[in-house]
Amino acid sequence: MAAPESGDGNNGAARMVTLISSDNTRFEVEAAAASLSQTLQLTILDGGGGGGDGIPLPNVDSATLSKVLEYCIKHAPAAANGGAPNATAVDRAELERFDNEFVNIDQSVLYSLIMAAHNLEIEGLQSLVAKKVADMIKGKSPMEIRRTLGFPDPTPEEQAEMNAHMLEYGWAYE
C-alpha cells in the first residue's frame, strides 16, 4: 500500500509503525496515518509500534484494518495540514469522492468499520460511516428501514406492536 506523500516530513523519511490485527496480520504504515486514531496516537507519541514490536489490535480483523488504514492514509496529509487552510478545492473534491466511494460497501463490512472506527477513535471515519448508515435510513418507512438494516419481517405480534407504537409516535410520521 503505497502511501501518498505525507504532509509532515519533519525528520526525513516518514516514521513507520506496525499494527497487528486480531488474526495476526502485520500492517506497516506511516505514523502520521496511524495517528488519526486517538487511541493509537498516545502510544505512537511514546515511541511505540516501531521496529519489530508492533501494536496489537485484538478487536480489529485484517480485512477491516486494511480498510481502516486505506482511509487513514488518504486522509493523513489533509489532517497534517490542520484540515482546510491550504487544501485546494481540488483536493477537497478528491477526498470527498474518495469518501463516497469508500463507504459504498457491503453492510457487514460497514458495521465492522463502524466498530473499528469507534474502538480506534478515528473521528472522521466515525462520522463518515455513521452518516452512511443514516443515509440508508433517511426518508424511509419503518418497514423499509427494517429491511434495509437487515431486520427480519415482523411476526404478527410484532406487527401489532409496531402499529400500536406508530400510533403512539404519530408526531414522527406526519
Partner: peptide
C-alpha cells in the same frame, strides 16, 4: 446524522 428528530424517532419501530 438523521435530518430530524422525527426521522430518528421512526427507528424506534
Amino acid at each position: 446524522f438523521l435530518p430530524s428528530a422525527a426521522a430518528a424517532a421512526r427507528t424506534s419501530v
